[in-house]
Amino acid sequence: MIRLILKRIALSVPLVIVVTMLTFVLNNMAPGDMAATLLQGEGSNAQYEELRVKLGLDRPVLEQYGDWLGSAAQGDLGKSFFTGESVVSLLNQRFWVSFSLVIGALILCVSVGISLGLVSALRGGFIARAVDVVSVAALIFPSFWVAIVLMSVFSVWLRWLPAVGYTPLTENPRLWFLGLILPVISVALHSITTIAKQTRDSMGDTMNRDFIRSLRACGIPERAIIFKHALRNASLPVVTVIGLVTVSAISGTVFVERVFVLPGLGSLAVEAALNSDIALLQGVTVYFTLLIIAVNLIVDLSYGWLNPKARVE
């Protein structure tokens, strides 16, 4: 297992390099740059050129990237061109907002999704059909649209929950929780139905296998058959889906944080891109990439735990 982890960490290095290089180059090709943002449309051409030289934007793209990579390798992600703050400290402040959002969404969609899937696999009938219909329907609605609808119903109309903003957990746990409810639901809604459907299909499949019939013939109680024997076998494809869902939840935060005005990594990424704040954008990219690599590693490790066959290889 330790070998697998080390191998993954080693493999993540080239991945981070490729992803950050792409971000760097693509951002460079986009119209507008840091100097133009700082001048805010004012100032002469000479001033603009001078600022470009001062910021080092006149050098070749790859040379700029090389500089960035060199200091990043030493743990220094630079300073935001725009605010002058250290990128690492900016990211660390914002990380916990996105982290609470993603973890909250995961807890919600895994618990509700698997329960719905189990009930529909084992009971069938109305719930099974409802899960089918709702999961297709839910795929149509993007998370930012769900976010706006939830906000107008629960915050504007019913006034039950705060519409926007974020209260840190350390400041007021109750407000922290209330403020996260709608964003978490917006991110999770999609995934609940995806997980429910996957659980239903693979559980239905497993319950028809012969070893389940043998256990029944032994007289083992149905509850023990489901939770001790069937669920673990049925969970392999579900774990794959949970991995995919986590990745899409991470990218979903970009929209949802924007709608609910949450100071997380996602909204930071949008600001950085709009301002052409390349150092900040690179920093967010590194964080997101590392997060996704971590998610995939956890998925692979749980495969080994769930499936003895995968353990050997």
Binding site: R209, D210, F211, R213, S214, A217, C218, G219, I220, P221, H229, R232, N233, L306, N307, P308, K309
Partner: peptide, 25 residues
Amino acid sequence: RRRGLGRDIQVVFQDPYSSLNPTRT
């Protein structure tokens, strides 16, 4: 009663690949 009968009446299936739980020794 079926639970009790499980001790007396047992079963062997056709497919040896699906008749053993793959996640248990």
